[in-house]
Amino acid sequence: MMYLAQVINSTLREISPILLVALCAGVCSKVQVFNIALEGTLLTSAFFAFLTHYFLHNIFLSVAVAMAVAMCMSFIMSFFIVRLKGQPMIVGMALNTFARGFTTFLLSVIFNTKGAVNPSDMKGLTKLSLPVIRDIPFVSTVFSSLTAIDYLSFVLAVVMFVIMYRTVIGFRLRALGMSASAASSLGVNVQRYQIAAATLSGCLIGLAGCLLTLGRSTMFIQDISGARGYVALAANNLCKGHPLGAILSSALFGFTTALAQSLQGTAIRQQLLQCIPYISTIAAMAVYNAYAKRKAAH
């Protein structure tokens, strides 16, 4: 029983960063900006969240800086893709390579190491302990050591849904993504909307970055993003850019990751367990597409 609660708990903690990134990916895909720089953006913002906190000891400032950095990266990405007509795939890979090099570079310049920095005296995001819940045995484990951003990510999914499907601005974004020529024939500056949407939604990745370095533990490791950006891309692909659907598809990946973690120490070796989230990503997409195909045929 306790074990189950722990699995759910770590699933929840795995969901939130992927969900936040997937929400950004959702906006980008709705406005037809193919963003695979998610991974690099996540890595960079995670690093800067850590760096800011390390020097300034101010959690709010760290979150703000992480969001700003993520928005910067997203701006560069969308500017190159939309304005300069760069090939999206290559722009994304370039930024990911850059992010990997840049963060490791700064890591070795500032901390004189290439592996991990794990300062013991650093205090990350506060773990919320909710009044009623902390007294219920099973539930308290389920919701233990979650930060405000973990909770916020689910709220943000709903907020993004409202923005995209209920407001004027969301309506316009979805519409211009469906047909850029129709939108521009009515005098809408499509490129400006695309860049603005991609840039602003970048701040969601910033929040995810904070979770990685200031959430569960306060540390930075080389490549700490660990393909979460790509997984989020797949998650968004599954839910077709719908913010509420993103909760479900992120949950799938969160769960498999948590499962892999919980099986550690069993007979199955760690390296094989680490394959599980990636294999299930492919499997989920294959199954979903096969299902969609069959549905379309009928």
Binding site: R166, T167, V168, F171, R172, M178, S179, A182, L186
Partner: peptide, 24 residues
């Protein structure tokens, strides 16, 4: 020049939406 997945009304009001605050 139409947004195919959207409704007739949505297509007509695009860019001059009938709004209530920020909402449609």
């Amino acid at each position: 020049m139409l947004f195919e997945p959207m409704t007739v009304a949505e297509n007509i009001v695009f860019k001059n939406e009938v709004r209530r605050g920020p909402f449609i």
